[in-house]
Amino acid sequence: MSILEVKGVNKRFGGLQALGNVNLSVKEDTCHAIIGPNGAGKSTLLNCLVGKLIPDSGSVVFDGQSVLGRKPHEINQMGISRVFQTPEIFGDLTVIENVMIPCFAKRDGSFRMHAYEAVHQEKGIIEQAEAILADVNMLDKRHMHAASLSRGDKRRLEMAMCLVQEPRLLLLDEPTAGMARADTNNTIELLKEIRKKRRITMAIIEHDMHVVFSLAERITVLAQGTPLVEDTPENIKGHPKVREAYLGEAQV
């Protein structure tokens, strides 16, 4: 049963056809990787899924409902969370406040005028936030300013902020970009654990083949804005068209 259905999506920027007739189907409870060389349209596709861009034509259906024309916060409330290429967190707030905000968003919706309650009395929200911080091994840092965290910890924090919402679909935009090998491996372990423990459906955009083949259960290869093939990692590895378009002479 597929949770995300992309059909015939086109997007042009002036003379550049960024996406040409893209079809993609992400099945529930899988980790689906979207790979492709630079400029293949991976990020454009992702932006079309979260409401940052609106495709020129085609349809994007999540869980039976179209997401086109909806604002980012509405799409998030439908159950899609996004992890950014560089961690987007609330740098001026403490770690626990960072995690409490998505808890409030989940409980109260996209706006509630809760100006007369006190944050320190929201026991349920605090417990929820502390539980997720314990899960990503950050409980001891909960009163630190988020901006002062290391890059790896910022990534873990952003992940925790997405996970605490219990999303139906987690979108990851190059979650290991610019990371050292050790950090990359830690992130892979973290994501594997999330997949195993929470059975969250993931769609991941990634350059690093090591990450892709460690995590993905399905892979779609994009080239020049069009999907080339979609298959299991084993078949993708040996696929001649993929080798030609993307992997080139690289040994995989």
């Binding site: 969370s81 609330f90 707030l93 409490m100 919706g109 919402q165």
Partner: peptide, 22 residues
């Protein structure tokens, strides 16, 4: 209040707030 927390979050990173469903 939680409302005040959201206001501080707007100052800190409005983009993240929108992608967090607010």
């Amino acid at each position: 209040s939680p409302f005040g927390l959201m206001l501080r979050a707007i100052k800190s990173n409005q983009n993240r707030l929108n992608y967090t469903g607010l």
